[in-house]
Structure formats: structure tokens, C-alpha cells
Computed example of a mutant assay.
Amino acid sequence: MARRRQLYEGKAKVLFEGPEPGTLVQYFKDDATAGNGVKNGIITGKGVLNNRISEYLMLKLHDLNIPTHFIKRLNMREQLIREAEIIPLEVVIRNIAAGSIAKRLGIEEGTRLPRTIIEYYYKNDSLGDPMVSDEHISAFNWATPQELDDMNGMALRINDFLMGVFSSVGITLVDFKLEFGRLWEGDEMRIILADEISPDNCRLWDSKTNEKMDKDRFRRDMGKVEEAYQEVARRLGILTESNNGDHQGPEAVQ
């Protein structure tokens, strides 16, 4: 596919204009950041793996009638997606205490929460993506109460699905982040899942050992980051033997 005009570059992905109106091409980079860009690095082959892992999970969600922006994978690093009006919120779904909630509330990391908790963060890197309430969301018109209900309902359904998928391959879904957008079709609007689902925005632990298999290995300088991403893809059945000689990262199944 010929390279098209770049529209946006984020920390992990680049968006290009799509071949048809209402579409975009999403390119997955190997760049890794932590602390809202304070820490930067490269995870070799991450873009390839995240592209395939996200494709795999988005297609499964489609089978559950959960609307997403995903249309199809174009190649090893690019997806064709629907253009949506992104809602400026990160929706975080927590099953087990880890990361910021453990620090904020003094809960030992690894403690199973009494029930699944949903948190909202305002998408603004310069402010450090502050945590916000539904009152903030309504007052500042980031999303209507109905839109928030739609996002919550979808988030809980996605959580149930992902917990089952990962549990079946020996992985515990600790928490994860979702982003949503408004898809306009004429005068009709619906909320759809956007962004990606991958070890970049999911905390994934080995079910037996609690070994981390996600970007926390990069955040916390634990090493073996590439191997962790590869292991997630391998367990999901979308990774062949790594091709270590070409420095291009692992080879995903076509």
C-alpha cells in the first residue's frame, strides 16, 4: 500500500489518511514510553506483535457484536480502521490492584479487588492524564451520561471476554485501558471501541507465577520486555518461531 499523508503521531502509533473517506491507516511503532513520555525506548518487534494481538482480539469482539474501529490488517504493522471522533477519556478497568491504584490507596499489589472497578482519566499528557469523575465528564461535556453508560457497559463486556481469553492460555488480566470514539453514519451516531488492545495497555501476569508479561517490564526496568510480548502472542497462537537473525522482531502468523 502506498504511503499516505500523515495525520497524527502518538507515542506508540501513527495515523495516516485512509484509501476511502471515513477510514484511516494505523501504523504500530516499536517506540515505548512510560510516565507520559518521561521514559523513552524501543521494544524490538513490539509494533508487529501489538498489531497482530490487537487484530486477533478486535475480531473476537466483533463476533460478540461489540463495535470497534477495526476493519482489517493491511500488513505486519498497519491496520485499516474507521475514522472516529475520539472521546478524550481513558477508561481503566481494574480486576486486581496494581500500578497507581495500589499506590493511591495503599493496597498491596496483587490483591484481588472486591469487584471490577472502572476509573476515568482525562487524556492530556501535559497534565499527566488526571483521574476524573463522572461529574467532571458531564460538567465539561467530554461525554454525555448516555455515552458514559454505553462505554461502561461495553467495558464490562470486554473485560469478561478478555478475562476468559487470557485465562484459557494461563494469563491473568490484572487491568487494562480502553479508548472509545463516536462513529457518525449520516445523522446517526454510535459509540465504538478505538485504539488497541495489547500488552501496551493491558497488565498481564502469568497465572501460576505472577510474572509480568506486559509494558510494566519496560516501566520498571525488569528486562526481557520483547520476550514477554512474544510469549503473550505465542500463547494466543499468533506467533511462529522468532526470527532472531534479521533484527526485525518476531514473525507473526499471516
Rank of each mutant, 00 (worst) to 15 (best):
K72F: 10
D246C: 04
R112Y: 07
A2P: 11
K11L: 07
G37I: 09
R220C: 15
D175H: 13
Y8V: 03
G186R: 12
E20R: 14
R220E: 12
L127K: 00
Q26G: 01
G186L: 00
L105S: 11
T33Y: 08
A143H: 13
V169P: 05
D31L: 12
L57H: 02
N95Q: 11
G41F: 08
S207E: 07
Q79W: 08
G18S: 14
L105Q: 00
A228E: 09
S54T: 13
L113A: 06
G245W: 02
E196D: 00
L162M: 14
G128I: 04
S100W: 01
V169A: 04
E135H: 12
R82A: 03
P250F: 10
M154F: 01
I42L: 15
D30H: 09
N36R: 04
M154D: 14
G10A: 03
I81C: 14
E55P: 08
G128V: 09
V174K: 03
N75P: 10
Q146I: 11
G41S: 14
Y229A: 02
I43Q: 06
P145F: 13
E185S: 01
D195E: 05
E119Q: 06
L57G: 05
I86W: 11
N75Q: 13
R203T: 06
D134V: 14
R82G: 00
R115H: 15
P21T: 05
V25E: 11
V225S: 05
H136A: 09
I197T: 02
T23E: 11
I118T: 09
E9K: 15
M213I: 06
L127M: 01
E196C: 04
P199Y: 07
V225G: 05
C202Q: 03
E185C: 02
T111N: 07
S198L: 00
D160F: 05
A12Y: 10
M213C: 11
M189C: 03
L105R: 15
I86T: 08
D134M: 15
R3M: 06
T23S: 03
N244L: 13
A252C: 15
E231K: 13
I191K: 05
N159Y: 06
R234M: 09
R77W: 15
S126W: 08
H136I: 12
E179M: 14
R73K: 12
V25M: 02
I71N: 10
V132P: 07
E188V: 11
Y56E: 08
F16A: 08
R217W: 00
G10T: 13
D214T: 02
G35F: 03
K123I: 08
F16W: 01
I87L: 11
N152M: 08
N36I: 07
I118W: 06
V232A: 01
V232L: 06
F166L: 12
R219L: 08
P114K: 01
V38Q: 10
G106V: 04
I171M: 07
R157P: 00
I81Q: 11
E147A: 09
A194M: 12
M58Y: 10
G249F: 02
R5T: 03
N201D: 10
R115C: 00
H247N: 14
M163F: 05
L49G: 13
D175A: 06
